[in-house]
Simulated assay, not measured.
Amino acid sequence: MFQIAGLIVFCGLLAQTTVQSAPDENVPVDLTSTLLDLPASLISALSDNLLSGGLLNSLQTLPLLDILKSGENAPSGLLGGLLRKANSVTSLLNNIIDLKITNPQLLELGLVQNPDDRRLYVTVPLSLVINVKTPPVGSLLKLKVKLNITAEVKAVEDDHENVYLVLGDCTHSPGSLKISLLDGSGSLPAQSLLDSITRILDKSLPELVQGKVCPLVNEALSHLDVSLVQSLVDELISGQLVIKV
């Protein structure tokens, strides 16, 4: 009888211990710590979602060769100044230019907040290498390309008080396109060729990248963890979100 009573008392104490320990798992300090990490959590989640969503493959398969072939449809386009004596610059470009995009990279995302409303701005910095080959003269140029896409992320609330993160404006950052020569060899003047390529890509590459990346950003937002979105939107709406630069 004593043993049974002892067991009952022991189980009662264990139950009390179990009940009392539950609230400790959700103390305000832990919640505050989590909220302070919201911007970093958002950046990390967006980066992961962009990569898993095929961002790098989209960059590597950009149809840059078609853009360079079309150029400006005139001798002033790619290689135009170097091949003026050719019967058809376009025909030569179709035959001699081989272009490959290698080493696409997603660099560290940036995040800033508009202090006046519920908007965030995510900077998506991209980098890739373009190999341009001209077989007849054995020339190989390696170009480094960097470009930023800026995505506006807005917190919205519907009639049922449900909150969401949605993609607003998404565009390339003006002036962020940088093209530099990594390596060049052969008889063709590397700088002249670089100038010609840069002239064409300046006009078309930003919009081309934007068209590929922005839908992926929208998809990445839709796959964010629900609890992360809820916490982030709550802090954004209340004006308590703090982003450390």
Rank of each mutant, 00 (worst) to 15 (best):
G71Y: 02
L236K: 00
G175E: 03
V166P: 06
L42G: 14
V226E: 10
L147A: 10
A74V: 08
L141Q: 09
G239Q: 00
N26M: 13
D37H: 11
E72Q: 08
L236I: 12
I67D: 02
D195E: 15
P136G: 06
C214I: 05
G211S: 15
E108N: 14
L83Y: 07
V153G: 00
K142N: 09
S44Q: 14
N95M: 08
L42W: 13
L64Y: 06
S70R: 07
D117H: 08
S21Y: 05
T32V: 09
I43F: 03
Q20S: 09
E207S: 12
P115T: 03
P174H: 15
L13G: 03
P206A: 07
T198G: 00
L177Q: 09
A45H: 09
Q240F: 06
D169V: 13
P75E: 15
N26V: 12
L205H: 05
Q240S: 15
S180D: 11
N218F: 03
A15G: 11
S47I: 07
L14S: 08
G175I: 02
Q240N: 05
D159Q: 13
A5T: 00
L128A: 01
R84G: 08
V29W: 13
D202R: 11
S76L: 12
G12R: 00
V213R: 02
Q16C: 11
V226F: 15
G80A: 10
I179K: 07
N95Q: 13
S176I: 04
M1I: 12
Q240T: 07
S238Y: 04
P206L: 10
R118K: 08
G77T: 04
Q16S: 12
D37K: 14
E25W: 05
S41I: 04
E235A: 11
N49C: 10
D183T: 12
S52C: 11
D37L: 09
G80V: 06
T171I: 06
A155V: 12
N162S: 10
V27C: 14
E207T: 15
Q230P: 04
S127H: 12
E219F: 06
L143P: 03
Y121V: 05
L165Q: 00
V137Q: 11
S41L: 08
K154H: 07
L13R: 02
H223C: 04
K144M: 15
C11D: 02
K178W: 13
L165F: 00
L194Q: 03
N94P: 15
L68N: 02
L167H: 01
V19K: 02
P135R: 09
N94M: 09
I200F: 04
G110N: 10
D202M: 07
L201R: 04
L92H: 01
L68P: 01
I67W: 00
A40C: 03
S238D: 06
S127Q: 15
V122T: 06
S70G: 07
I179A: 09
V124C: 03
S187W: 08
V245F: 05
V233A: 12
L216S: 00
L68G: 01
D234H: 15
L92S: 02
Q191D: 14
K244A: 13
E219H: 05
L7I: 05
R199K: 10
I96K: 09
L241S: 01
V137P: 13
S196V: 05
